[in-house]
Amino acid sequence: MTPHDIGATVLWEDPERERLMAELVALAAELADLRVELADARARLEAFTRFHDRIMAPLFAELDGVEADIAALRARHDDGPETRREAEEARRRARESAWAADAARADAEGAERPRPPVGTEARRLFRDLIRRCHPDLAEDDADRARREEFTRRVNDAYARGDTALLAELGREWRGGDGGGSWPR
């Protein structure tokens, strides 16, 4: 039933409306098809990524291990600070790529992923934070609750090996929450 059928007055009707509506319906159908294609491409990419990681991650781990051994040999012959730093960096990369290889293997086997490697800086920050914010140091129940929540955040950051977040949490603990209620 149109406005003409019930006696209503129509001031103006766009002559292009039907064509534009048909075009809109066609474009919506095309968009739906493209979304299906995108989902399929993402699924294929994810499968390829898992396959690639399962094959290549152990090879990269082996390569990084060899490079770390070479850097360690160089550091033994040249005891300069730059050479030692390069050796430490190479060893860190080797640990990370070994972790990635273990994670790829666990994904392929459907096992639980291993924890990321935790560097010496993350370990130092974690220990320092826990010493300062541990709930056993609380003065009252409210302080204990704040410390328990903060300790949970510190533990989560450490479990992920997130050195940057641990450093940020250290600044947060030292800086307080603006109201001065965080112990220093």
Rank of each mutant, 00 (worst) to 15 (best):
E18W: 00
A122F: 02
A87Q: 04
D14Q: 01
P183T: 14
R54V: 10
A101V: 06
I70G: 13
L24M: 12
L31W: 00
D69M: 10
E121D: 12
A94K: 08
D136M: 05
L169H: 01
A43N: 04
E89H: 06
R93Q: 06
G178E: 15
R42W: 03
P116C: 06
R35M: 00
E13M: 08
R127A: 07
D64N: 08
D141H: 10
R147I: 12
R124A: 15
D14A: 04
R184G: 14
R146V: 14
G178I: 14
E30N: 05
L165Y: 03
P114N: 13
L166M: 12
T163M: 07
R50T: 13
A104D: 04
T2M: 07
E112F: 12
G176P: 06
T120V: 13
E149A: 15
R105H: 12
A159P: 07
A108T: 08
I130W: 07
D128L: 06
A75G: 13
G176N: 12
F60H: 05
D143T: 12
R144V: 06
A29R: 08
R123D: 06
E37P: 00
A167H: 10
D140C: 03
R123H: 06
P183M: 09
A71Y: 02
D136V: 03
G119T: 02
A61P: 00
D40C: 02
R105A: 10
W99A: 12
R84Q: 15
P117D: 04
A8K: 11
R132H: 08
R153P: 05
I55Q: 05
W12R: 09
R124V: 12
G65H: 06
P3L: 07
A8R: 13
E139D: 07
S97T: 11
A90L: 08
E18K: 00
V36L: 00
H4E: 14
S181H: 15
A157W: 00
A26N: 05
L73E: 15
D107H: 11
N155C: 09
V118Q: 04
E89P: 05
L166G: 08
G119W: 00
E172V: 07
L27R: 04
A71Q: 03
R95G: 05
P116D: 07
R76S: 11
C133P: 00
V66F: 05
R144E: 12
A101H: 04
G176F: 09
M56P: 00
C133E: 01
A26H: 10
F48S: 04
M1H: 10
F48K: 10
F60A: 03
A142D: 15
A111T: 15
L27N: 04
E148Q: 12
R115P: 13
A26C: 05
W182M: 14
A72C: 11
R19F: 01
L38V: 03
D69W: 08
R19I: 01
L11Y: 07
V66G: 01
D156K: 15
I6R: 15
E30W: 02
M1Q: 13
M21Y: 12
D53V: 01
A87V: 11
